[in-house]
Simulated scan of single mutants.
Amino acid sequence: MNYITTDIAKAIRRKRADLGLTKKQVYTQLNISFKTYKKIETSGYKVKSSVYQKITNWLAKDY
Rank of each mutant, 00 (worst) to 15 (best):
Tyr37Leu: 05
Tyr27Gln: 05
Asn57Gly: 06
Ile32Leu: 03
Ser50Arg: 14
Val26Ala: 05
Leu21Asn: 07
Tyr45Leu: 11
Ser43Gly: 03
Thr6Gly: 06
Thr36Gly: 02
Ser49Phe: 03
Arg14Pro: 01
Ile55Gln: 04
Arg14Asn: 12
Met1Trp: 12
Thr28Val: 02
Ser50Asn: 14
Tyr37Asn: 04
Tyr37Gln: 06
Leu30Gly: 01
Gly44Thr: 10
Gly20Arg: 10
Asp7Pro: 09
Asp18Cys: 13
Lys46Ser: 05
Ile12Cys: 08
Gln29Arg: 01
Ser50Pro: 08
Gln25Cys: 01
Ser49Arg: 11
Lys46Trp: 01
Tyr63Leu: 05
Lys10His: 13
Ile4Ala: 07
Lys24Ala: 09
Lys38Pro: 00
Gly44Ser: 13
Lys54Arg: 15
Leu30His: 02
Ile8Gly: 07
Gln29Leu: 03
Asp18Trp: 08
Tyr27Phe: 10
Asp62Met: 01
Gly44His: 06
Ala17Trp: 05
Lys54Pro: 08
Thr6Ser: 10
Tyr45Lys: 06
Lys61Phe: 15
Ile4Glu: 03
Thr5Pro: 05
Lys48Phe: 11
Val51Gly: 04
Asn57Leu: 11
Tyr3Cys: 05
Asp18Gln: 15
Lys38Arg: 10
Leu21Ser: 04
Lys54His: 11
Gly20Ile: 14
Ala9Thr: 07
Ser49Gly: 03
Lys48Ile: 09
Lys39Tyr: 04
Ala11Asn: 14
Ala11Met: 13
Asn2Ser: 12
Lys48Met: 13
Tyr27Leu: 03
Val51Gln: 07
Val26Asp: 00
Ile8Lys: 03
Ala9Pro: 00
Arg13Ile: 11
Lys15Arg: 11
Gly44Phe: 08
Thr56Ser: 02
Glu41Arg: 00
Ala60Thr: 07
Ile12Val: 15
Phe34Asp: 03
Met1Gln: 15
Val51Asp: 08
Ala17Cys: 11
Tyr27Cys: 02
Gln29Pro: 05
Val51Tyr: 04
Ala9Trp: 08
Met1Ser: 15
Thr56Arg: 04
Lys39Leu: 04
Lys35Glu: 06
Leu19Tyr: 09
Thr5Cys: 13
Tyr3His: 05
Tyr63Phe: 12
Trp58Gln: 03
Ala17Asn: 13
Ala9Tyr: 08
Leu30Gln: 02
Thr5Gly: 12
Ala60Asp: 15
Tyr37Ser: 04
Ala9Asn: 04
Asn2Pro: 01
Gln25Ala: 11
Glu41Asn: 00
Tyr37Trp: 10
Tyr37Thr: 07
Ser33His: 05
Tyr3Trp: 12
Phe34Thr: 02
Ala9Met: 09
Thr42Asn: 12
Leu21Trp: 10
Met1Lys: 14
Lys23Pro: 00
Lys48Pro: 07
Val47Tyr: 07
Asn31Met: 01
Thr22Trp: 09
Thr42Val: 10
